[in-house]
């Protein structure tokens, strides 16, 4: 009865997706192999004249101490990416598991889990971060875990909502009728369909986590190692911004492109996997 009135969807990821993935790939590769590449030591002082603009020797210029901004941006990416990845991986494992379990079993489990999600969501993230980093240390692990805790609720709620949507579907009932155990239904029937929107959110979330780390650095609450946030923080003095804005701008540009890539990749991926459920 309903003839194809929708324009048939383009089942292509498109070049923007591949550009985004390319950027992320290059970023991961350079940061992983940074020690092997001909890059200055990010902490070495006076690798060039202080506060000089971009040149052939120092691609991104140098900061107030004469440190190479390019090297610092590359090494800083390590921390930012690790923070983003760990936070989201943790959020997906913990939030995703809780969300799927809550959405599948419903009842009192759902009530408790959903309440926990709401509690987490209504707790101001910044205050939580302040609390944790000031109570514990400012190590990479603490900062990652802080952001990870904040990622649990949004991802978990998405997992729960998607599970609720699919949990009553006939294919789940069919698996029950065949005699599948709950574990099998969750892993074989629900996980594959819940993973798609979750993965798309995870990519967006990674961007958010990277920005959040930058924000923490601004408050001097982030890691002691170099991160994008730390570099931006270094270059944010009035004098720096007026005389050599590149110190802050270069890591900001890197962050901007990275987050844009994550968002594009996530968005396209969701569209690509958006399961068509009609026969036409």
């Amino acid at each position: 009865m309903n003839v194809v009135l929708d324009e048939a969807e383009a089942k292509k990821l498109g070049c923007i997706f591949w550009l985004a993935v390319g950027w992320l790939g290059v970023l991961v590769a350079t940061t992983s192999f940074a020690p092997l590449l001909p890059i200055e030591d990010p902490s070495a002082i006076a690798t060039g004249p202080a506060r000089s603009g971009p040149s052939l020797d120092n691609w991104f210029g140098t900061d107030a101490l004469g440190r190479d901004v390019f090297a610092r941006t590359v090494y800083g990416a390590r921390v930012s990416l690790v923070v983003g990845f760990v936070a989201i991986a943790f959020g997906m494992v913990v939030g995703g598991t809780l969300g799927i379990i809550a959405g599948y079993f419903k009842g009192s489990i759902d009530l408790i889990v959903n309440f926990a999600f709401f509690a987490l969501l209504s707790f101001p993230g910044l205050v939580l971060a302040l609390l944790i980093t000031s109570t514990f240390d400012r190590s990479l692990r603490t900062v990652s875990l802080t952001l990870a805790v904040l990622a649990v609720a949004p991802i978990g709620r998405l997992a729960r909502a998607t599970t609720l949507l699919y949990g009553e579907r006939e294919f789940v009932q069919a698996a029950r009728v065949l005699g599948a155990r709950h574990f099998r239904i969750i892993t074989r029937e629900l996980l594959p369909v819940v993973m798609i929107p979750m993965a798309a959110l995870a990519l967006l979330g990674m961007g958010v986590a990277i920005v959040a780390e930058g924000g923490l650095a601004f408050l001097q609450l982030s890691v002691e190692e170099i991160s994008w946030g730390v570099i931006i923080n270094d270059g944010r003095g009035i004098r720096d911004l007026q005389e050599n804005p590149h110190v802050a701008l270069m890591p900001i540009a890197a962050m901007f492109i990275t987050i844009l890539s994550l968002n594009f990749a996530g968005d396209r991926l969701r569209d690509y996997f958006d399961v068509r459920e009609t026969a036409f």
Partner: peptide, 11 residues
């Protein structure tokens, strides 16, 4: 089931 498409896991 009634809905043939929804009774099969799309993935």
């Amino acid at each position: 089931f009634q809905d043939p498409i929804s009774s099969l896991n799309p993935r």
